Amino acid sequence: MGTEVAVIVGAGPGLSAALARRLARDGFRLALVARNVDKLAELVASLSKQTTVLPLAADAADAGQIEDAFARAEGALGTPDLVVFNAAQRHRGPIEDLDPEAVLAAYRTGAFAGFLTAQAAARRMLRRGAGTLLFTGATASVKAMPQSTPFAMAKFALRGLAQGLARELGPRGIHVAHLIVDGGIASSWARPGDAGAPDRWLDPDAIAAAYLTLHRQHRSAWTAEMDLRPWVETF
Score class of each variant (00 low, 15 high):
Gly114Ala: 10
Met145Asp: 14
Glu101Pro: 01
Phe135Asn: 01
Arg108Ala: 00
Glu74Ala: 13
Arg124Met: 08
Leu165Phe: 02
Ser141Ala: 14
Lys155Cys: 10
Lys143Trp: 14
Phe115Lys: 13
Phe156Cys: 06
Ile95Cys: 03
Ala63Pro: 11
Tyr107Glu: 04
Arg72Leu: 09
Tyr107Ser: 02
Val103Tyr: 07
Gly137His: 06
Ala61Lys: 04
Leu56Trp: 08
Asp99Met: 05
Lys155Gly: 09
Val53Met: 08
Leu165His: 01
Thr52Val: 14
Phe115Gly: 07
Arg128Ile: 11
Ala60Pro: 11
Gln65Asp: 13
Pro146Arg: 09
Ala58Gln: 08
Gly114Arg: 12
Ala61Gly: 13
Leu161Lys: 11
Met153Thr: 12
Phe115Glu: 12
Asp81Tyr: 01
Asp68Pro: 03
Gln89Ala: 08
Ala106Gln: 05
Leu82Asp: 11
Phe115Ala: 15
Ala61Phe: 05
Pro146Glu: 07
Pro55Cys: 03
Leu126Ile: 15
Ala76Thr: 06
Thr117Ser: 10
Ala122Thr: 15
Ala162Asn: 04
Pro150Asn: 12
Phe70Cys: 02
Glu74Val: 12
Arg72Tyr: 02
Glu96Gln: 12
Ala120His: 08
Arg128Leu: 07
Thr79Ile: 15
Tyr107Arg: 02
Arg108Ile: 00
Ala76Leu: 02
Ala106Lys: 08
Leu134Pro: 00
Pro150Ile: 12
Leu134Ala: 01
Ala45Ser: 14
Ser148Met: 14
Ala140Gly: 06
Gly78Ile: 04
Ala45Asp: 15
Ala130Gln: 14
Val53Asp: 08
Lys143Arg: 15
Leu133Trp: 03
Thr51His: 07
Phe135Tyr: 09
Lys49Ala: 11
Gly129Ile: 14
Ala144Pro: 08
Thr149Met: 10
Val84Glu: 02
Gln147Gly: 03
Asp99Ile: 06
Gly164Arg: 01
Ile95Glu: 04
Leu47Ser: 06
Leu161Gln: 12
Arg72Thr: 09
Ala102Cys: 02
Asp81Gln: 02
Phe112Tyr: 15
Thr149Gln: 12
Ala60Lys: 11
Gly164Ile: 02
Ala144His: 05
